[in-house]
Amino acid sequence: MANVLIVKNLSIQFRGLAAVSGYALSLEKGAIFGLIGTNGAGKTTVFNMLTGALVPDSGTIAFEGKDITGHRPDRIAKRGIARTFQNLRLFSGISVLDNVLVGAQLYKHYGYFQGILGLPAARKDEAALREKALELLEIMGLADFASREAGSLPYGSQRRLEIARALATRPKLLLLDEPAAGMNPKESLELMETISRIRERFGVTVLLIEHDMKVVMNLCERVQVLCYGKIIAEGTPTEIKNDPQVVEAYLGRSVRHA
């Protein structure tokens, strides 16, 4: 199977501190891949580099065979990588539907003048975008909230909205940064099902940062463990669970929570 993403030797420092060093990753198309590690291990920093929010000091990122290292975030999004944020970054003052529409607007077909003049082409296109967005809200179980202000949603729903918004860009690779954080067990179980369904339905590859070991074990086919910016293990969830180095560095402490 083809690799969607190939990352080699990715490193970045913050004021001399190596946040991530020598990071590598090969993602198979259609995989659900887990990235775990303690707080401050560098997981979010990896996402930031993959999406162009941070420019790595060294290393290469190839997406669908093309180098995207250091490209602008909007260009990378356009190529097909979407993400959610660990600390939610919704457009909280506008409606739930509008949040998703912002993600969908990569697929608008009308120009500035058609928009400002309110020409039929723009109206028709908007109607189509709206329909697609509502469909996504339906899939994410947010249809009832469509006209609510995004910031007023319950926390779990805000997390779902971030995923809906990311999906609206029709990504080939979806990066989820702790999507189950702050959710109760029932919510996080539902979320797992949703993520599986998303993969089936959209054929999207998923890279997932998660603390909840139950989520990781159930959902991911392969897992990578990051510790102080370095990969210390990679394998199937079962292999990871039994890796002595991982148990010592990470699982030993968090297994109790899981």
């Binding site: 975030p73 909007d74 909280s92 003052g93 506008i94 509008d98 309110g118 908007e126 609206a168």
Partner: peptide, 24 residues
């Protein structure tokens, strides 16, 4: 329009807007 929504998105959260493909 989509242009205005993009502008509002930039106001609300520039980082997220950019990550969703809006050329800031």
């Amino acid at each position: 329009s989509a242009y205005g929504r993009g502008m509002i998105a930039i106001r609300e959260n520039t980082v997220a807007a950019e990550a969703l493909g809006i050329p800031i």
